[in-house]
Write a protein that binds this DNA or RNA. Structure first.
Ligand SMILES: NC(=O)c1ccc[n+]([C@@H]2O[C@H](COP(=O)([O-])OP(=O)(O)OC[C@H]3O[C@@H](n4cnc5c(N)ncnc54)[C@H](O)[C@@H]3O)[C@@H](O)[C@H]2O)c1
Ligand SMILES: NC(=O)c1ccc[n+]([C@@H]2O[C@H](COP(=O)([O-])OP(=O)(O)OC[C@H]3O[C@@H](n4cnc5c(N)ncnc54)[C@H](O)[C@@H]3O)[C@@H](O)[C@H]2O)c1
Lengths: 237, 237
DNA sequence: AGGTGCTTGCGCACGAAGTCACAAACTTAA
DNA sequence: TTAAGTTTGTGACTTCGTGCGCAAGCACCT
């Protein structure tokens, strides 16, 4: 048994479709956004060099990323903007809209609700959930319509009714794990977490986190290093 | 030809202090947060296994990360929680408070202002800037005191007066590049960008971005893939 | 048709990051 | 003090991601 894991050695040139590197996937959304912008501006064709510059990556990296999806370019010419935008969007699963449930309608949650970027990228807020009695039951305008904030107890029903696939956690840190458990129990397998805690979820559930404090601390690290380097003499003990 | 690179070959075991991998730096804030929590809970000592579990990483990765900072553990015992928390914080530059300026006091900007996580992690909002006449001049309570929203024209003076080192951009996408230029001109070299655009900045300026739509699209990709691959056939032995 | 000038797609090599496994170093027990 | 048990710190190895360079392929011109 256990002989040779799948894909024994060799070059494996043809992995198109399956096995796109995570690093590539993380960049695809940027490519899509820039391509859509270019398309709106009337640009019909673009070279890897120009597109890469607009996306803030190297041309080689861009071409390698795109080569994982297939050959959508034309040698000697470049890429058809609309054509490429469609295929990258398709690869990301943006051809159909995704339903999003937001848990925790506080400062951040309300900012998220009013975020126009959801609708324009194919994400629709289909549910709002909170635990505070003052918030539950209130109506909030989101996108074109109105949504009534429901209680956490109704989460499973809400998910079943709306077919939501993505849950966004914007509750205080203390409640985040409990909320995550509820989301998983309700059938959600994709979670975006804004609370500064490490969530535990079963295998098969994907969690991504956005942690403002972490980003600031990384900036602080570099800022600090910059300050201490230029000085040849360090008066520190 | 490829010779004469600085730092040619050899193991260079002693790179403590300089040359901490980026991937490690990105994890240090999580370690600090978990360690602080443990410390508050009265935990005095922790093994790499337990700490790693709480941080959502593997014990080996945790130990390698910490080994880049120095030897702060005790073999056969583990790490002193408070001692380690101090040294990791120190490495990140969290011993002194950092001044933050927020540009764009709209939905998101106001949520950021009311974010308690700033102060508790050693970041202080020292300035608010907006362009809209209705917002400029208004006072907003942040942390302990009040801050008056100033105009973008006063940014350089604001930065000089407050000594702010970090700029947060929460303006619409169209304005983000212009704001970034202003921040750089004002002397800011660390920027956190919430607008969905790729910023161009001179060398020496560090930009980190938080893009909600990108995160959602990455989730959508995995969600889609999960749905389309219910395994048509499984080799059974 | 054939030549010329671009640009893509990709093999290959290199470097960064992650995993494994174990000797070194410490505590505790006797 | 010695031995047994525990856990760190780290070299060696594996995997992943990036950058280089160029042959293949397309458009355009003569
Ligand atoms: N405000 C920001 O700009 C910001 C930035 C980054 C991260 N965060 C994080 O986002 C989270 C929310 O921040 P905030 O400023 O909006 O806080 P908030 O207190 O304003 O809002 C939290 C909301 O969650 C609700 N809630 C509490 N427990 C709940 C539960 N068990 N189920 C459902 N809802 C529950 C509360 O009723 C409240 O409405 C926090 O974890 C915070 O650290 C906030
Ligand atoms: N709202 C969210 O939850 C959310 C989430 C993710 C990303 N974002 C992004 O964050 C940014 C802000 O979002 P928002 O919802 O707060 O928008 P908003 O329109 O509510 O706020 C934008 C603010 O920026 C100000 N502004 C405009 N031009 C300016 C300039 N040149 N200089 C200074 N200030 C200027 C406006 O006056 C306004 O107060 C957008 O780029 C958005 O895509 C928002």
């Amino acid at each position: 048994m256990s002989l040779s894991r799948r894909n024994v050695g060799k070059t494996r040139t043809r992995d198109v479709g399956r096995g796109i590197p995570d690093a590539t996937i993380a960049r695809l959304p940027v490519y899509v956004r820039v391509l859509k912008t270019m398309s709106d501006d009337g640009v019909t064709t673009v070279s890897s060099e120009d597109l890469a510059a607009s996306c803030g990556v190297s041309p080689a990296k861009l071409r390698k990323d795109l080569s994982h999806l297939g050959s959508y370019g034309t040698r000697g010419v470049g890429y058809d903007v609309a054509f490429l935008a469609y295929h990258v969007s398709r690869e990301l699963g943006l051809t159909k809209p995704w339903g999003v449930v937001i848990i925790g309608v506080g400062n951040l949650g309300q900012a998220l609700v009013s975020y126009r970027g959801f609708a324009t990228r194919g994400f629709e807020v289909v549910g709002l959930v909170d635990a505070h009695p003052d918030v539950v039951g209130t109506s909030i305008s989101v996108g074109g319509g109105e949504l009534t904030v429901t209680s956490l107890d109704d989460l499973a029903r809400l998910v079943a009714r709306t077919g939501a696939q993505i849950g966004v956690i914007s509750t205080p840190a203390e409640a985040a794990q409990r909320v995550a458990d509820s989301l998983v129990a309700a059938g959600i397998r994709s979670i975006l977490n804004f609370a500064p805690v490490v969530l535990c979820v079963p295998d098969g559930v994907e969690v991504r986190k956005v942690d403002l404090a972490v980003e600031l601390q990384i900036l602080a690290f570099h800022e600090q290093r910059r300050g201490e380097k230029p000085l040849p003499e360090v008066m520190h003990a």
